[in-house]
């Protein structure tokens, strides 16, 4: 159900008092669950649940040519399909803007954090490299798909193995592999999407809260040698963000990064 005028006004009033329908604080996240092995045909796969939001992410590997401007690096391709299975809002046919934006955001969150050592995915320089495909599918959309998707992508990458090659150098997907994708030690990016509703800013909205939002900003964040790094950022929506709001986000995001990283330790 799309947001109505009176519900939106009530949400603005509630957020002003720091309250939410599910009793969370404005920057409090819902429970997160991560599990693996969505598909044994994937090189790695993960299922992420944040409240009632659920996404599955799979990693597939294939051999291909490097891009001309990076002959010494493997390729990364992120795609997403907003399956009409996951929400009455998602329709069949060519993707609308949210369907285009989601994989682009996940791509930057992953790529710019340098979690994948693409230079170690070269089979023959200039000729043959590994392509890492990350495919994101929502199963149930109850808000905050982007953060769920980027978390799923990281989990699936950490779970992924490079497939074995046969005598002729062709991929044998059926052979068990022990070799993980080369990942940078200690780098594990997350994304946090802040939503502005009235004068309030919240994290991890439900679908209903997301509908009421006037603006969103998504940050990809990681930690390099103990130092927080913002790797990507995109503001969406017409409503501007004030300097004070941005400052506040920057103080919240580092705390949230540590908090979620800690919580995810039992999964990732």
């Amino acid at each position: 159900m799309e947001i109505s005028n009176l519900t939106k006004e009530t949400l603005i009033r509630m957020f002003k008092e720091g309250k939410r329908f599910d009793s969370r604080q404005l920057t409090e996240l819902r429970d997160i669950e991560v599990s693996y092995n969505v598909s044994n045909k994937a090189e790695g796969s993960a299922r992420v649940k944040i409240g009632k939001t659920e996404v599955v992410v799979g990693v597939k590997m294939a051999m291909g040519e490097p891009y001309p401007d990076s002959p010494d690096k493997g390729n990364l391709t992120v795609s997403a399909d907003l399956l009409p299975l996951a929400s009455p809002r998602f329709e069949m046919g060519p993707p609308d803007f949210p369907g285009i934006e989601l994989p682009r955001l996940v791509d930057r969150i992953i790529r710019e954090s340098h979690i994948i050592q693409l230079d170690k995915l070269v089979i023959k320089e200039g000729e043959k490299v590994w392509t890492v495909f990350i495919d994101v599918y929502p199963i149930n959309d109850d808000g905050n798909l982007i953060d769920a998707a980027s978390l799923g992508a990281v989990a699936a990458l950490k779970n992924a193995k490079i497939p074995m090659l046969d005598k002729d150098g062709k991929i044998d997907y059926d052979k068990d592999s022990k070799e993980s994708i080369p990942l940078t030690k200690d780098i594990s990016p997350l994304s946090f999407s802040f939503f502005k509703i009235g004068d309030s800013v919240i994290l991890d909205p439900t679908r209903e809260e997301e509908e009421a939002a006037d603006a969103r900003i998504t940050f990809g964040i990681s930690k390099w040698n103990g130092q927080y790094v913002i790797n990507s950022c995109q503001k969406s929506g017409e409503e501007p963000l004030t300097q004070a709001e941005i400052e506040n986000m920057m103080s919240v995001i580092t705390k949230k990064f540590d908090e979620v990283t800690q919580k995810l330790k039992k999964y990732i």
Partner: peptide, 17 residues
């Protein structure tokens, strides 16, 4: 009805769509 494979449900990645 709409039936489809997720890209990573099979060994050779299925192109989305």
């Amino acid at each position: 009805c709409n039936y489809d494979l997720l890209s990573f449900s099979v060994s050779d990645r299925k192109k989305p769509g």
